[in-house]
């Protein structure tokens, strides 16, 4: 398996003819008299890992929730797998929802079920499988996400934060979705676990051919596994593209994000490691 610490090949990244899996057009979302997402456009292509970054309160979570259909949009359209949710019958909508998996920020594991039961939940509810196969698949998924098998019969409250994330990822992958939403997958993990988790997402993405929509604050994740990055500010996408493009951008928020005190240190460190194809923007000390 290729090391996942390098992003997918440049050739794959630059194919213009790729399927659009998520297409967001002129999306407006707000609550009460506050508009949070203001005319947002975004495309996510098949097979890529898209990182979504943005300051707190800039609409990352609202965008994710709107794509998932948890928050209604005021106007604009969201197409997932080429279908507009609002136009679908309840049955078609359910079929659509079985094609994606979601990892919520705090895992959202069902607290009354064991880890194994959590992973089996989507299979049990939507597929007609034998107990044996469900057990095997659940344990296989558990191994895929790097959890030991004795975690299978534990309840979520008995797991550590990192284990909860892994178990929740296993549940998100239960039906082998084509598209996975990850909401801050590495938040709350120590740097070693976070790096492992990044690698895991990269490996799974390549093994299962997933498309990943990842909201993150973790600059390391952006560097190591994202093919493209979309930056959100003031309710719009201010820049989207390979990380290099964003790093070279002169937008004040992007400069502060990547070349600020914390980002700058990382960027500088990464630049030394990486090939010299692009010149880093001057870093502020």
């Amino acid at each position: 398996m290729t090391s996942s610490s390098t992003p997918a090949s440049d050739a794959a990244r630059q194919r213009p003819d790729r399927d659009v899996i998520i297409g967001v057009r002129d999306l407006v979302v707000g609550f009460g008299d506050k508009t949070i997402v203001k005319g947002l456009n975004l495309d996510v292509y098949r097979g890529e890992v898209l990182g979504v970054v943005g300051g707190s309160g800039q609409g990352k979570s609202v965008l994710t929730r709107t794509i998932l259909g948890l928050t209604p949009a005021r106007s604009g359209s969201v197409q997932v797998f080429g279908q507009n949710r609002d136009m679908l019958s309840p049955l078609e909508r359910r079929a659509l929802e079985q094609r994606w998996g979601v990892l919520f920020q705090n895992g959202a594991l069902f607290s009354g079920l064991t880890v194994k039961q959590n992973i089996q939940m989507p299979m049990r509810e939507t597929r007609d499988l034998s107990e044996r196969l469900m057990d095997e698949l659940a344990l296989l998924k558990l191994e895929l996400v790097g959890l030991s098998l004795d975690a299978a019969d534990k309840f979520p409250s008995e797991l550590s934060g990192g284990m909860v994330k892994r178990a929740a990822l296993a549940r998100a992958l239960a039906l082998d979705p084509e598209l996975v939403f990850l909401d801050e997958p590495t938040s709350g993990l120590d740097p070693i676990s976070a790096a492992e988790f990044d690698e895991l997402i990269g490996t799974l993405q390549q093994t299962l051919g997933l498309t990943v929509f990842m909201v993150t604050h973790d600059l390391d994740s952006l560097y190591s596994i994202c093919d493209r990055v979309a930056a959100l500010a003031e309710g719009r996408v201010i820049a989207a593209g390979p990380l290099e493009t964003l790093l070279a951008s002169n937008h004040p928020w992007l400069k502060a994000y990547f070349h600020g005190v914390r980002g700058g240190r990382l960027t500088a460190a990464r630049v030394e490691q990486k090939d010299e194809q692009w010149k880093p923007a001057p870093t502020t000390p």
Binding site: D135, L139, E143, L149, D150, A152, Q206, T207, L208
Partner: peptide
């Protein structure tokens, strides 16, 4: 890769 990752193993349930 997928076939490799899912190679058969016995899951010994505790």
């Amino acid at each position: 890769t997928l076939l490799e990752e899912t190679h058969y193993r016995d899951f010994v349930a505790p």
